[in-house]
Simulated assay, not measured.
Amino acid sequence: MNNYIKYLTDIIALIIIYAVFLFKKWKSKGKDMLLVNTLLYVYIALVLYVTLMPVILSLPFIFDHAYIPMNMLAFDDYFSGRAYAAQQILLNVILMIPFGFIIPIVKKQNIFSCALLTFLFSLSIELVQPLINGFRSSDVTDLITNTIGGIIGYLLYLAFKPLINTLLNLLKTNQ
């Protein structure tokens, strides 16, 4: 089956979930919360696109291959001198910065709860990746670097908190 159709199936499912279950709920909380929750939803959808998709059409085949256990040697690729290991580390940090930035706007968090949520989100992805297809693997380095990215995002949130509050208040007053 064409890869575009596989991805399109997942994207349509995400759009339906948003339209049917989430949009009205978030809209009732005001434009500010609709905007922030929608940004988080779109961000999570993009992360799923990069890390897990296609999912729906892969489900019937999740047990057709061996589950590859998580690589538990932190930064093994980097220390082994594998090509693109440093870029992969940087990309994993960057991937989770928006999560750490947006999560405390959606629901007030401290740095520890934000780091825990980032870790759990990353762990969920890492545990599901090898199920989706036999070519994906999970790695403890990804958990570490993703969590660091979430913490950096939270620190950026703290730096921009006054501006964020001003923008959200403007949205509230324009309702």
Rank of each mutant, 00 (worst) to 15 (best):
T173W: 14
T173A: 13
V93D: 01
D77C: 07
L39M: 15
F23C: 10
L59S: 08
M53S: 12
Y154M: 06
P130Y: 02
Y78L: 15
A86G: 10
Y154S: 02
P104F: 01
N146K: 01
K29Q: 15
T118C: 07
A85P: 06
F135T: 11
Y18M: 08
V106L: 06
A83T: 13
K27R: 14
A86D: 08
G134P: 01
G100W: 03
I15T: 10
V47G: 02
L167R: 09
I5R: 11
L123V: 03
V42H: 06
M33Y: 14
H65W: 11
R82S: 09
I15N: 05
T38A: 12
A115T: 03
T38M: 13
A13W: 10
W26V: 04
L117H: 09
S58R: 13
F63K: 11
K29W: 10
M33E: 15
Y18S: 09
N165A: 13
L120D: 10
L163E: 12
N3L: 15
K27M: 10
F61H: 15
F79C: 06
Y78M: 14
N37F: 01
Y18K: 07
K107T: 12
I102W: 01
I5V: 14
F121Y: 09
L59Q: 08
K25P: 07
L52R: 13
K172Y: 09
N133F: 04
F121L: 15
K172R: 14
A45N: 09
F75M: 13
A19K: 12
A66I: 14
I17P: 04
D142S: 03
L39E: 03
N92Q: 05
S138N: 06
T147V: 04
G150C: 04
M72W: 15
L57P: 11
D10R: 03
M72P: 07
L123T: 02
Q88D: 12
E126I: 03
Y18V: 07
L52E: 05
L143P: 03
F101C: 00
S137F: 15
L167M: 12
V20R: 09
L22Q: 05
L8H: 07
G100D: 04
P98S: 02
Q88L: 13
A115D: 05
Y78H: 08
Y154P: 04
L155E: 04
I164V: 13
F101V: 00
Q87A: 14
T145S: 07
N92I: 00
D32T: 05
I11H: 10
G100Y: 03
V20C: 12
A115N: 06
D142H: 04
I44K: 00
L14H: 12
N71R: 11
A159V: 05
L48C: 11
Y41M: 06
L73R: 11
P162V: 01
Q109W: 02
V42E: 02
I12R: 02
A13S: 11
M1Y: 12
F99T: 05
P130H: 05
D142L: 00
L131Q: 03
T145R: 01
M53T: 08
Y157H: 07
I148T: 01
K108H: 10
L14P: 05
P69H: 07
K161I: 09
R136G: 02
M33G: 08
H65V: 00
L168R: 06
S28N: 14
L117S: 09
Q129S: 01
A19Q: 14
